[in-house]
């Protein structure tokens, strides 16, 4: 056997996923672009109260439907609210809903996928058939059904979007689990007496984690899009709260007076989705099984 210890200095310890991340950023410069834009958007959302020039909910009839100008940089809406401030606060809503929905979908979906892949047979069949039923609905339709049933609110939006994202995560977690469970080290775990739950959580899950995380970055973009779409048709967060989808719709009502009302929130959505897709694509290429070492 070749001695691979020489390649790395002694004591330097790197998780294989760290290597994959490093490779993603080294080989594909666009990954950097995506990461930087996304991090900036997150920072801006966090610092919204500090950065906003105006109160996003403050109505002012005297300043309604203004175009971009020195006082209101991106203009005002039909109630005279500052578009820039509403965009900054809207970023919070989009990101909170997206991260919460995808976070829970990631946890639940990968648990389902690992269990299905690990046990195989009938368990796998039943679980994956159920997932296929969910998958048959387009994300928007399923979200629409759930929100229509539960009523529009932030929590229900999160539940609805998370529900649509669980099946793809289950699929993404199941496939590598089927490969990993046949590996010698899982057999070795059994020979050490470990139970199924321990093997699944401590030994299988870390091996499928990178795939799940990459999928997460791509699905975060989808979640933000779906949130905007649901808000656009009036099933999103309740009106006074700023959300990008809601802002586009409100802008539509006055589009002949002020086209910027819809343009700016659309650009914001575009920017987030674009940055997440750049980031996700870069990561996905880096963990591509064809280029991955078998160690």
């Amino acid at each position: 056997m070749t001695d691979q210890t020489e390649a790395l200095p002694r004591g330097v310890s790197r998780h294989p996923f760290v290597d994959q991340l490093a490779k993603a950023f080294r080989t594909n410069k666009l990954t950097w672009v995506g990461a930087v834009i996304f991090v900036l958007i997150v920072l801006v959302a966090i610092a919204a109260p500090l950065l906003s020039p105006h109160d996003p909910l403050q109505q002012n009839i005297l300043h309604r439907l203004k175009g971009p100008g020195p006082e209101f940089w991106l203009g005002t809406d039909a109630y005279g609210r500052d578009i820039l401030s509403r965009l900054l606060y809207g970023a919070r809503v989009s990101l909170i809903i997206g991260v919460a929905a995808i976070g829970s979908a990631m946890v639940i979906g990968s648990a389902i996928g690992v269990v299905a892949g690990y046990y195989g047979g009938k368990v796998d069949l039943v679980i994956m058939q159920a997932m296929d039923v969910l998958l048959a609905f387009p994300a928007l339709i399923l979200g629409l059904i759930v929100v229509a049933m539960l009523g529009p609110s932030m929590e229900n939006l999160i539940i609805a979007i998370s529900l649509t994202a669980i099946p793809p995560f289950a699929r993404i977690a199941r496939a590598p689990t089927i490969v990993v469970k046949e590996r010698d080290y899982i057999e070795a775990c059994r020979a050490l007496g470990y139970g199924d739950l321990r093997i699944m959580t401590l030994h299988v899950l870390p091996n499928v984690l990178s795939e799940i995380l990459v999928m997460g970055s791509l699905w975060l973009a989808t979640a933000i899009r779906v949130e905007a779409s649901l808000s656009f048709i009036g099933l999103g967060v309740k009106p006074p709260t700023a959300s990008w989808g809601g802002m586009i719709r409100e802008g539509f009502e006055n589009i002949l007076d002020n086209i910027w009302l819809s343009i700016f929130p659309s650009l914001a959505i575009l920017l987030v989705v674009f940055s997440l897709n750049l980031l996700g694509d870069g990561l996905r290429d880096a963990i591509d099984p064809r280029t991955r070492s078998d160690a």
Partner: peptide, 10 residues
């Protein structure tokens, strides 16, 4: 197989 009997991510 010592090469494959250890979990690569632990």
């Amino acid at each position: 197989e010592p090469m494959t009997s250890l979990n690569p991510v632990l």
